[in-house]
């Protein structure tokens, strides 16, 4: 590769990266401006005075901590549920023999093909019948397992040599023991990949909380961010401060676990 060519590549990639990053930069810069400064035309780039107080104001004017807690709670519960239930089912599909296995697996595949919207309305009606509307149950229980999660972990479990389980079996280990002591410890990367998908989907989910909750106490961050458009009217510095805090945890998480994020995402695009 010639130097010139390499430089050219860098210029193209950097230009693209700038386009990716600028909206976030503008978010942060706006969040630190006064309301008056945000309403200047043409806009200023760097805040004339840094208004870190905007962030505190978000907490004063809204129940932001509560939204944060709600989102954290639903994310943790969904992730824990999926890790447990999906890995259990995946273990059975990957290692055990039982009547109806193929039929259940086909059923699983068909669930995976269903777009979420098709079950939205009956799920809502069901949740309403259960008197779960506007509760944490509505936000978490329907997401405690997923066909995708079972499928993903099954692929992982299939890559573990069956002899390991067989040997444990011969030694008299029970199935739960083989699951907990042989398969789970060996599939840490798979469990981490699934967690990443669930965390990302749960933290950022909008349609479900929108439909399943109505009160301010049950709001999630994504709902809050969407509703600020109406509530703060045109106070973009406050909205941007709120948006900044809502997206930061996942960006930090991504930066910390980048390798696993990328492996997990790339894995789903692989032939399996």
């Amino acid at each position: 590769m010639t130097r010139l060519y390499r430089l050219l590549l860098h210029i193209v990639l950097a230009a693209g990266a700038l386009l990716m990053a600028l909206p976030f930069l503008w978010m942060v810069l706006t969040s630190l401006k006064t309301f008056a400064e945000s309403m200047q035309a043409p806009p200023t780039l760097i805040p004339a005075s840094w208004q870190f107080g905007n962030y505190a104001k978000v907490f004063e004017e809204t129940d932001f901590l509560r939204y944060f807690g709600n989102t954290l709670l639903l994310t943790v519960v969904k992730t824990a549920g999926q890790l447990l239930f999906c890995s259990m089912a995946a273990f059975a599909f990957a290692t055990m023999r039982f009547p109806g296995k193929n039929a259940l697996f086909l059923l699983l595949l068909s669930v995976m093909m269903l777009p979420h919207q098709i079950s939205l309305i009956p799920t809502f009606l069901l949740v309403k019948e259960l008197h779960w509307l506007d509760t944490y149950y509505a936000l978490t229980v329907p997401g405690l397992a997923s066909a995708f999660g079972i499928f993903l972990l099954r692929q992982f479990f299939l890559s573990i040599p069956a002899e390991l389980g067989e040997a444990a079996r011969v030694d008299g280990a029970s199935f739960p023991r083989i699951y907990a002591r042989v398969y789970l410890p060996l599939s840490a990367p798979g469990l981490l990949s699934l967690s990443i998908f669930v965390v990302m989907a749960a933290w950022n989910d909008f349609l479900n909380p929108l439909v399943m909750t109505s009160s301010d106490e049950m709001r999630t961050l994504s709902l809050a961010v969407a509703s600020f458009v109406g509530e703060f009217s045109t106070d973009y510095p406050l909205m941007m401060a709120a948006a900044c805090m809502a997206v930061l945890p996942l960006i930090v998480l991504f930066a910390a676990l980048q390798r696993y994020f990328i492996q997990g995402i790339a894995l789903t695009g692989m032939k399996s």
Partner: peptide, 20 residues
């Protein structure tokens, strides 16, 4: 054991995805 292992996930999937 296999049925016990798949049951929780299939309850959730059946009740909140497939049946709806």
């Amino acid at each position: 054991w296999a049925y016990a292992f798949v049951l929780p996930a299939f309850i959730v999937l059946g009740v909140f995805h497939l049946l709806p």
